[in-house]
Design a protein around this nucleic acid. Structure first.
Lengths: 235, 235
DNA sequence: CCGAAGCAAGAGCACTGCTCTCGTTGGTGT
DNA sequence: ACACCAACGAGAGCAGTGCTCTTGCTTCGG
């Protein structure tokens, strides 16, 4: 894989990117269900059949967009964490920074969010390639807790958890090479899921006529989640 | 509206129900995006155009299914609550009973669950008729907490919440005619959203290779949510 | 320099939601 | 008893979709 690999491959990657960009634009405009290969091709001035040289099927295009979206939201989380002063900020601050960063991305890209955290597209099974980008937000959250644990700023939950849950959590920790108590890891998984529960309800309109001060509500809930995994506010 | 209103209207409601039943079957088989009016009509042995006498559009059919699904999951919640011994069971037990009842329904009807708690499919509009059925699960949860509060078995969270959040929560309580502290109501809304976050992650495959003991994990998380709204375990 | 591979385009298939126009039928007011 | 009208089912048809296949053209590598 040399840097310059001929004009052909450069054109190919350029066109691939253009297709994805146009598809993203349609996604933002109409949602995943209305994404049409023909419309993308039309907008790009090419025949619809030519598009199949780049993506074997509509689902493959969607898969590519899914991977991009996972990476984008993961990057949003990491940037939010790094920007809040990774060295100086307290673990709780870094946790909430990640949460608000993720929320900001989701609010800015609701259809892409729906693509990855909404209902799975019909008959679509997530390929192996999506699992790694999908983990980035979770890994960012775990990282904060791991650092807090290393710094002795973690209060392990007193309450015991069911054995199978702790076993799963420890297996997960081993797979990731993370040294954390099983109870903390289990709570982390729960907090991770609950974070996206809050986001999905907000984005999918379930909070309409229920909560209006959504930013304040979310930040308070994120803080609560930080507590639930054992992060403590240094005072 | 007499009881017997002619064969015509009886036939109409029967056919309407048959259409919904067949649509639900297709939903369970293939998912919402693949639901086809023509296929429903074909299966029912009628012309596709005849179907439009009963539902003006595909989205209207989906809306009807959404309302049904909300009612079904709400009823599942209420039945789970009532079956666990509403009079004798502790508030925490009733809370977790509702949660597990909701989960059981969701696992049994994943596509209908995705229809109501996944990405909004039909171009983003929730008619007024859906809001009331949509609230049933939340109301069941609120009811448990209200009863616990009346019985003096509620420990109000000590931590203060942002004013706008409390104001929204109190407005919500007033609208529902529920006497509960603002902090508790706000936490309830959060717990409600987080409950469905857990469910969505499980149903949409986000826990694959992460948590295997999903039942135990869920019940522990539900218990945790009960605590977060102030329910206490009597000993 | 030539063959092979990559590429774009067009026609075409089977399908979709939806509309319109027919002939028919059932319930109702006179 | 009759006539009328609204509801009804069926069929044809329109515009759109994902996808396949065939046909030429361009570019690259030996």
């Amino acid at each position: 894989m040399t840097a310059i690999r001929g004009a052909r491959e450069r054109a190919r990657s350029e066109i691939t990117e253009a297709i994805k960009a146009e598809a993203r634009a349609q996604l933002a405009a109409e949602g995943a269900a209305k994404l049409s290969l023909r419309a993308v091709a039309r907008e790009l001035g090419m025949a619809s059949s030519a598009l199949y040289r780049y993506f074997p099927s509509r689902d493959d295009l969607l898969t590519a967009l899914i991977v991009d979206a996972y990476n984008a939201i993961g990057e949003a989380a990491e940037r939010a964490r790094d920007r809040c002063g990774a060295a100086t900020a307290s673990p709780v601050d870094r946790w909430t920074a990640i949460c608000t960063g993720v929320r900001a991305w989701a609010l800015a890209h609701p259809h892409e969010y729906a693509l990855i955290y909404g209902s799975p597209v019909p008959g679509y099974r997530a390929p192996r390639t999506t699992t790694e980008p999908a983990a980035r937000v979770g890994l960012a959250l775990i990282g904060v807790v791991r650092d807090a644990h290393a710094a002795g700023a973690l209060k392990e939950p007193a309450e015991p958890l069911p054995d199978p849950v702790v076993a799963d959590a420890l297996a997960l920790g081993a797979e990731l090479g993370i040294e954390l108590p099983g109870t903390v890891l289990a709570r982390l998984v729960g907090a991770w899921a609950q974070l996206f529960g809050l986001l999905s309800f907000e984005l999918f309109g379930q909070f309409r006529n229920v909560i209006e001060a959504r930013t304040e509500f979310f930040e308070q809930a994120a803080l609560q989640l930080a507590r639930s995994v054992g992060l403590t506010t240094p005072r």
